[in-house]
Nucleic acid binder design. Sequence first.
DNA 1: AGCTTAACGGAGCGCTGCGCTCCGCAATAT
DNA 2: ATATTGCGGAGCGCAGCGCTCCGTTAAGCT
Lengths: 208, 208
Amino acid sequence: MSTRGRQAEAARNDLALLRAAHEVFTTQGFDAPVSAIARKAGVGMGSLYRRYRTKEELLQRLCLIAMERSLERAEAGLTHADPWEGLALYVRGSVADKSGALAPVAGTIEVTDEMWRVARTAGEAAARLVARAHEAGVLRNDVTRLDIALLIEQFSRPAPGPPAPEHDQAEQRLLAVALDGLRAPGTTGLPGEPPSPEWYERRWGHAP
Amino acid sequence: MSTRGRQAEAARNDLALLRAAHEVFTTQGFDAPVSAIARKAGVGMGSLYRRYRTKEELLQRLCLIAMERSLERAEAGLTHADPWEGLALYVRGSVADKSGALAPVAGTIEVTDEMWRVARTAGEAAARLVARAHEAGVLRNDVTRLDIALLIEQFSRPAPGPPAPEHDQAEQRLLAVALDGLRAPGTTGLPGEPPSPEWYERRWGHAP
DNA sequence: AGCTTAACGGAGCGCTGCGCTCCGCAATAT
DNA sequence: ATATTGCGGAGCGCAGCGCTCCGTTAAGCT
């Protein structure tokens, strides 16, 4: 052991569990068995269920962390001097840590007040990032912040079949294509109406 | 009844079953219950299992039909005078009938010889479509036919949550963005290596 | 009209695989 | 030496699946 004591082990277990849960849920989907998380974390079922009384509680904690990380990414993007690079970094980063993969949990788990708060804050930061790109004229103007959010979600979806490095590589190429498509002047216009905020939020369960 | 006789009903049932199976599998995934298909088709379990001895057999039939349709779409695209419009029509059409949604069946069902044959033919037609666009200079040259195939697959993935028309609309906007990205000169170059044919085919099970 | 027969719908069987509990054991603290 | 804490994992109860089987219905035949 790197550090002595049971408390230290407990702390390490907790981190390993969150890491494992993130990987398992984002690669296998939400109905992945809890035992798979325990196994990947190198931890027994007993230890898992002592920290999280239920699978839902674990998912809620995981969602919250993912949202906080997304918020950090958006703020980091705003820090960047170049509005386009700031946005691109945010999108690529969000896809890299599969931010959107936990969104379809909608209706499956109860959304806590804290989750709503962080989601709201993260959404606003992303909106500022998108607005800045729009004002700088580096992002096609017929695209909204929800289009960006759905793009991230789309590229965060768990891959079918066994995990393969080739898949991630292929996905990054497609993401690069999509990002190039976002830069285009876009005078052609996108089809249909932009996604409505009401629909977007309703997918997560009912408003607070 | 529109036509009399048991044979007529059987034929109608067969069509309804295939339609229902396509919709259920593409929107819910492959482990959707067989009973959901029977219900959507307005048919009892008995009738379903008289035509298809097993769920796998139904899936095989469905895959084959999807591949044949994809082949038709590719040939229709080649017929089109404008190389770009031909390709775009193929991509949009394939996404519309969720051609790629059945690909992740890989490893789940046994791939028949006939399926391999049709898949090969459809792949070749798509390759011609892509090559023509490349030669005409309307498709960025750092993109391969497998990138296109994976793009279609990506946009064919079943949507999370309950089916909503808004989702399809939002997806079409993202697809339009991606298509614009495909037209760009692309001198920037895509990241990583293009997907290898070996990996792509291996996902379907072992070669014939 | 009566009889035969084929196709129908759907209840339910057997089983797999899940979330979660419980308990014997090992490692620490006193 | 004893008490206590946290550990791993076997197994319980159950939900939901693929598939079968059978009573019922209705078309075809004479």
